[in-house]
C-alpha cells in the first residue's frame, strides 16, 4: 500500500477508536478492549476489501461480515457509522433503551449488520452458511468472520471449521483477533486454544500470520486469501487488546468495563492527539 493510503486508513482507525471509547463511556458499559484491538482490521475491511454499498445494505451480491465476537459491537458500530450506514450521532444511543444500537449486533435493527451475534461461537457457523449459499448459488461474494481467541474455546467453532473445510469454502475468510486476553485473564491460562495455527491448518484452513494492527499486513493477508482456492482461510492476527489507549493496552480488566470521567478524558486526550498527528501527516503528503 502507498504511504498516503496507510496514513488515511490509520486516521480512520484512530477516529474509530475515539468513537469506541465515546460509546462505552456514554453507555457506562460495553467492551472497549476487543473493539480497540480490531479497529485496524475493521478499517481495512470496510475501506479497502469489501464490495459493499452503504446505500443498499441488503444488496444480494454484497460481501458479508459476521462479527462472531458480537460483544465488540462498539467497533462494528463505529465502522458502520463512519462508512455511512447510519449517522455517527446515533452512536450516542449505544446500549440505551431508545436506541437501535443494542449491546450486541442485531441484523434486523442496524443497517449493515449481516448477522445477529452475541452468543459466542455461533457467528462463525452463520458465516459458513452464507459462504455455502454463495457456492450453491454460484455467486462471487465473499464472507468475512471476525472471531475472538477466547471465543474459539467454544466447541461450535470447531464444528464450523470442520464444515468450512469440508465444503471447500474458499469464499470464506476467518479473522482471528489474537490479543491473548479474555474476560478473566490470559487466554492461554484460562483454557489454552494454542497452537491455533496448527489446529486450523489441521482442520483444513490456509493460515496466514499477521500483525493485526499493521495496515499493510492486514491488506496483504486479504489479498493473499483471494488467491487461495479450494479451502477457507484463517488470518491469525496478533493484536494488542485495548490498542490506542495506553492504560487499556494488554490489560484484561478493559475487556468489558467502561472508563470513569478521568480515565475517559485521558483516553480522549491520547486519541485526539493521534488524530491530530495523522491529519497533519495526511495533509502534508
Amino acid at each position: 500500500m502507498e504511504k498516503q493510503k496507510v496514513l488515511e486508513l490509520s486516521l480512520i482507525a484512530a477516529k474509530m477508536r475515539r468513537l469506541i471509547v465515546d460509546q462505552v463511556y456514554a453507555a457506562a458499559s460495553g467492551h472497549p478492549g476487543g473493539s480497540l484491538s480490531i479497529a485496524d482490521i475493521l478499517t481495512v475491511l470496510y475501506w479497502q476489501e469489501l464490495n459493499i454499498d452503504p446505500n443498499e445494505p441488503k444488496k444480494a451480491d454484497r460481501d458479508r461480515v459476521v462479527l462472531s465476537k458480537g460483544h465488540c459491537s462498539p467497533g462494528l458500530y463505529a465502522a458502520l457509522a463512519l462508512r455511512g450506514y447510519f449517522p455517527v450521532e446515533d452512536l450516542k444511543g449505544f446500549r440505551r433503551i431508545e436506541s437501535y444500537l443494542s449491546g450486541h449486533p442485531d441484523m434486523n435493527a442496524v443497517k449493515g449488520v449481516d448477522m445477529s451475534t452475541g452468543s459466542l461461537g455461533q457467528g462463525f457457523s452463520a458465516a459458513v452458511g452464507m459462504a455455502l449459499a454463495g457456492k450453491m448459488d454460484k455467486k462471487d461474494y465473499r464472507v468475512y468472520a471476525i472471531l475472538g481467541d477466547g471465543e474459539i474455546q467454544e466447541g461450535q467453532i470447531w464444528e464450523a471449521a470442520m464444515s468450512a473445510a469440508h465444503f471447500k469454502l474458499d469464499n470464506l475468510v476467518a479473522i482471528l483477533d489474537n490479543n491473548n486476553l479474555q474476560i478473566s485473564g490470559d487466554v492461554d491460562k484460562v483454557m489454552s486454544p494454542y497452537p491455533i495455527d496448527q489446529k486450523f491448518a489441521a482442520f483444513g484452513f490456509e493460515v496466514i500470520h499477521i500483525d493485526g494492527n499493521d495496515m499493510n499486513q492486514i491488506e496483504a493477508a486479504f489479498q493473499k486469501a483471494r488467491t487461495i482456492k479450494g479451502k477457507p482461510t484463517l488470518i491469525l492476527a496478533k493484536t494488542v487488546k485495548g490498542k490506542g489507549v495506553s492504560y487499556m493496552e494488554n490489560n484484561y480488566n478493559w475487556h468489558g468495563a467502561a472508563p470513569n470521567k478521568e480515565q475517559y478524558e485521558q483516553a480522549v486526550q491520547e486519541l485526539d492527539a493521534e488524530i491530530a498527528r495523522l491529519e497533519k501527516e495526511v495533509a502534508a503528503q
Binding site: R64, D114, G129
Partner: peptide, 26 residues
C-alpha cells in the same frame, strides 16, 4: 440431492449454518 446437505453429527453448527443460509433468502 443438490439442495440437501448432510452436516454430520454436529447439530449446533447445523443450526448456525441454517441461519446463515436463511440470511440469503433460502
Amino acid at each position: 440431492p443438490e439442495r440437501y446437505i448432510d452436516m454430520g453429527i454436529a447439530e449446533a453448527n447445523m443450526a448456525g449454518v441454517a441461519a446463515g443460509l436463511a440470511t440469503t433468502g433460502k
